[in-house]
Structures are given as C-alpha cells and as structure tokens.
Design a protein around this nucleic acid. Structure first.
Length: 137
DNA sequence: TTGTTGACCGAGT
DNA sequence: AACTCGGCCAACA
C-alpha cells in the first residue's frame, strides 16, 4: 500500500492535469511559465526572473526552474534552452537530455555560447510581454 | 508529519 | 569584489 503521497498526485509535475472540460483557471504558474517560454522568439533568450515576474511570481523564480523540469515532458515542447539565469549562464543545461544539447540548440538559433555563457546576452535577451508596443513600466 | 533541496534573484556583510 | 543569507512555492525523503 502506498502511504507516501496522499495527494491526488498522479505525475509529479503538472502540465498534464486532467482536462475535465476546460482549463478554467489552473492557477498553476507552471502553465503560465510554459506559455511565456513558448512565446520566446527564436534566436532570443530570457531569464527565469523575467518569466517569473511575467507570471506574477517574481519572488519565486526558483519555481520557474522546477517548472522547466517538466518542460521536457510537456506538449508542445517548451524551449527551455532559451531560458537562462540572470548571468546569461546556461545553468539548466545539465538538466537537458545531454549537457551539450542546450548549447547546440542555442547555436542553431544563432546564439553564441561561450563557456556555458551567452555572448551578447543583452543583445539576445528578450523580455516577455515586451514585443508588443506596450511600453508601460 | 517535518525538514531539506532546488535549472533563481536581490540585498546585505 | 566575493561570499552569505533570506524569500518564494513545490516536490522529495
């Protein structure tokens, strides 16, 4: 008998919750994070903090990382390789299928990675919710 | 059940 | 300048 998890937990990470009828309000920032990351244009990168802030959880940027943990199993696939830390370092590359996958993916998009760090990080940095003409800050 | 860790960020020392 | 600590939420032991 399983006495461990008593929660309704089926698979550890969300993103595949049951869609009874409609996602009224999952309230899971995981989905919000996925959506935001998916919005990242090709050849562009963003940071966990930026996503967290866009998701409304600036203080919980760490959770964004956890959310990315399930990004590999969520459909459509989330370009987690476009998400780096504040230093522009590929901190999560170790969590990919292969530690070099992230670099290669970025390289394919024209992003130059040097020593696990993105060159011209500021140039390729993309801010979620900014592509629009909305400049309110 | 409690306690620790975590793909982070920011401030303080 | 480098290191330490706090904070948020969730999953794991």
């Amino acid at each position: 008998m399983k006495k461990y998890p008593q929660k309704k937990e089926k698979n550890s990470l969300p993103g595949e919750e049951k869609n009874s009828s409609e996602a009224a309000k999952p309230a899971s920032f995981f989905e919000v994070v996925y959506k935001l990351v998916r919005k990242v244009p090709k050849g562009r990168v963003t940071t966990y903090g930026a996503i967290a802030e866009a998701a409304g959880i600036r203080l919980s940027a760490r959770m964004v990382g956890w959310a990315m943990n399930g990004a590999g199993r969520v459909r459509p696939a989330v370009p987690a390789h476009r998400v780096v830390n504040r230093n522009g370092m590929l901190s999560g590359k170790q969590h990919f299928a292969t530690p070099t996958l992230m670099e290669e993916l970025l390289a394919q998009e024209g992003i130059i990675v040097k020593n696990d760090k993105i060159e011209n990080f500021k140039a390729v940095y993309w801010e979620p919710g900014s592509p629009k003409t909305k400049s309110k800050k």
